[in-house]
Nucleic acid binder design. Structure first.
Length: 99
DNA sequence: TTGGCGGCACCCG
DNA sequence: TCGGGTGCCGCCA
């Protein structure tokens, strides 16, 4: 089980309508300061269809980046009922899923 | 508020 | 096999 496999698996635990952060996800798989690692893994993820990498945001509540463009990520989150305003999630504190 | 650099797995040469 | 560069961040000054 690679680290990336664990990351993908963890990410699948996040329910629709919720999001998680790079830092939380990193710690969830045993990394203390692996935020960038998570980001890189997401960017290079081999299963973009089954991996909801758009549900991962920055700890500040901002959307962060996305391999296919931030606007795409924003739209997908909107489709799941998450409101985005000025590049950041509205009321993110209640939308972030804790493992 | 903004900028800069730290920390880490993975990829490529 | 090994070393250096890279990236959807996060914290501290």
């Amino acid at each position: 089980m690679n680290l990336q496999q664990k990351i993908y698996k963890k990410l699948l635990e996040v329910p629709k309508g919720k999001v998680t952060t790079y830092g939380e996800l990193a710690k969830a798989v045993g990394l203390k300061n692996g935020q960038r690692t998570v980001g890189k893994i997401m960017n290079k993820n081999p299963y973009p269809v089954i991996i909801p990498c758009h549900r991962v945001v920055m700890s500040t509540g901002k959307i962060g980046g996305y391999a296919y463009g931030e606007h795409v990520k924003t739209k997908m989150l909107n489709d799941e009922g998450i409101e985005i305003e000025n590049g950041k999630i509205v009321d993110s504190e209640n939308l972030i899923y804790r493992f």
